[in-house]
Design a protein around this nucleic acid. Structure first.
Lengths: 118, 118
DNA sequence: ATTATATATGAACAACCGTTCATATATAAC
DNA sequence: GTTATATATGAACGGTTGTTCATATATAAT
């Protein structure tokens, strides 16, 4: 039986490695995807999102519900806005935030299912 | 028409704020969920996961496909393992990694759909 | 037992991230 | 105009994260 060197010349799965290398999407795609998931990788942002799943809210309401400063909430909303997770509309002095599209809740739910079932 | 103070006594949506406060899950749940999403919030880990979607692989193969050091790959696999995202089995000198459960791919796909469609 | 290979792990360091504090802008009421 | 309210933003700070380098462990072959 032929000897298999793993990390030198002959890999454990040489033909597989070659195939995987060729079919792999570009780094930018993984970068973009990781930036999307980063939006969900913070408990404060998850809380904000879960509130917005129920209805549109202003900074003020969110800060009150989460017992956080307006500034902290506003910064997080700004991050979510820049990443196209949420949108906003102004009504007088208030700015109301809501989800930008329905994928967001799907991602959230997929994660939630995982932690509930394990 | 009654004046509405937002951040002082009467909120913009007073009854909503109260309801949201009461029905909100515990902080630990958001913490756990954010830690799950954190696993997906790095391009290297996403690459590793997308490789493992196709088949089980050893450190060596992954390092080769991604052109990374074995150490860097091993550290990421360690993180994924500790967070129950992947499992492993030993076969001689090699250790083969694979997905721990099928939810992982669902979360990944939900994210991927989002970035493709926008 | 010695050597080689595959993987793991600890320490260190730079880069990134989330909050806070202070300040600025925008709208509304007067 | 001025004042008050709602939100945004810039700077700074501490904490976390991902990689690298060096070293350790585990299995296999000789």
């Amino acid at each position: 039986m032929k000897k298999k060197l793993c990390c030198d010349v002959v890999e454990v799965h040489p033909q597989v490695v070659t195939k995987l290398k060729e079919t792999m999407p570009a780094h930018e795609q993984y970068q973009t995807l990781s930036e999307l998931f980063k939006m969900f990788a913070d408990p404060t942002r998850l809380k904000i999102l879960s509130l917005l799943f129920q209805q549109e809210l202003c900074v003020c309401d969110i800060a009150e519900v989460l017992s956080m400063t307006h500034s902290a909430v506003s910064h997080q909303l700004s991050v979510l806005r820049q990443n196209r997770i949420i949108k906003y509309r102004r009504e007088g002095k208030n700015i109301f935030y809501s989800l930008d599209d329905e994928h967001i809740q799907m991602i959230y739910n997929a994660g939630m299912e995982h932690i509930i079932e394990s």
